[in-house]
Design a protein around this nucleic acid. Structure first.
Lengths: 232, 232
DNA sequence: CGGACAGTTGACATAAATCAAATAGAGTGG
DNA sequence: CCACTCTATTTGATTTATGTCAACTGTCCG
């Protein structure tokens, strides 16, 4: 739960992430000329990166690990609004809003680079490519959100879970065993189900030998079977 | 079901909608200099304005009436992804996507103005104010989508319906009797419920004298009671 | 008057939540 | 290394919410 925070100036030029970042379109020279403070951070799993309602000063690019964006309800329950993987952005709602719209929590150890929102705003006004990149991410987020609305509105628990597992796997291509730092409660809060119900379905999938699971790792043994359930 | 389509050149300068449109920030001169083909259209309720998968050539501003954006499932069911009111935009996903992502259907007689997507794209690159306006609408759409995810994931049928009715009312401020062109099936497809279940709850709300309904009009008699249910 | 069709209502089936208890693991301190 | 604790998970029994099927009603409209 304690923030094991590391911080150092980032070298964007050499960043492995650069091609997939919002600075993808820029030349090396343009990148150097940004004059932006970009700082690399590392947090332990469980760390809260920002809270819903916090005034928004920074946005982040997730370089490694997974993060959940959560909205908390008055009655103590919570809904996971989005799950983020390496390459995803977070905190960008601060470009137009004073405050963060979700609570961001690291699911595993994460590496982030942190961008100052004010600088980013100016930058995006100056550089069409940056603005364009942010815009596109936004659109993709909207499409994913709408697809989750369809999911939640029309599909049953088994199908939602199966769909989710397959999508999770897509975030880690060419890996036979996937990092899987989600608890049953996380799954429930993402899929709109009780933890018990998630547990039953996961146990069922495992009994059918569609999955294998061991401390934070997941292996999908029968994607076809899961695919069949996910459409039903 | 037949498209009663009227079409004429639009006079944006005199448009009552102008202050709320994506051209809100522009001066009269700038507006004149746009050189855009903007065409006013009118469709009867039930008309399909475009279909999911259609190649996207136009975007629209909804000037009057209500529209549903629908995603159809393989099994014949459908999910209403968004409901649009006067002032809302539709078809803008065509700015970055080749094809429309939803089917747009008029719920009542609607008045639209139609914008050519190619021209709009050029325009938005030229005019920061326009781009900004579109961006902000996008962000609001994402926030609404996320709030629906929370709703669908955590709330029961009664609460979802009550919330929805109150939100619908907000789209028609200072009106005691609201236009309400939605069928029980529409409500079901928006809220992720069966038509029968929606019907039961609506009937229940009416029996409690929280609502009154008559051919396409809805009156909310007890917003407080609905509000209480909507949080439960 | 007679169809369509949307809405309502009832009886029943099923999905999922809730409550409660048992089990399994992972970490901790001796 | 073991005993112990704490927590996540699993499982079972039961309740509740919601869906499904079917019949009936009302209304609009030709």
């Amino acid at each position: 739960m304690v923030a094991e925070e590391g911080a150092k100036k980032s070298n964007c030029l050499r960043c492995a992430m650069r091609a997939r970042s919002i600075f993808a379109g820029l030349s090396g020279e343009e990148l150097c000329a940004l004059g932006m403070d970009v700082i690399d951070l590392e947090f332990a799993g469980g760390t809260t990166i920002y809270r819903e309602g916090d005034s928004a000063s920074y946005a982040y690019t997730l370089r490694e690990g997974a993060i959940k964006l959560v909205k908390s309800l008055a009655d103590g329950r919570a809904q996971i609004v989005r799950l983020l993987h390496h390459g995803d952005l977070l905190g960008f709602e601060g470009l137009h809003r004073e405050q963060h719209q979700h609570t961001a929590i690291a699911l595993s150890t994460v590496k982030l680079c942190r961008l100052d929102l004010r600088e980013l705003d100016l930058l995006s006004q100056r550089l069409p490519a940056v603005r364009e990149a942010i815009f596109r991410r936004w659109q993709r987020a909207l499409e994913e959100a709408e697809s989750r609305i369809v999911d939640l509105g029309t599909r049953r628990a088994e199908a939602r879970l199966a769909t989710f597992l397959l999508q999770w796997a897509q975030a880690y291509p060419q890996r036979r065993s996937l990092p899987f730092p989600l608890t049953r409660q996380d799954l429930g809060e993402f899929l709109g189900l009780s933890t018990e119900h998630v547990s039953r379905i996961m146990a069922d999938f495992k009994r059918r030998n569609w999955l294998r699971e061991s401390r934070g790792e997941l292996e999908i043994l029968d994607p076809k079977a899961l695919g069949a359930v996910s459409v039903s």
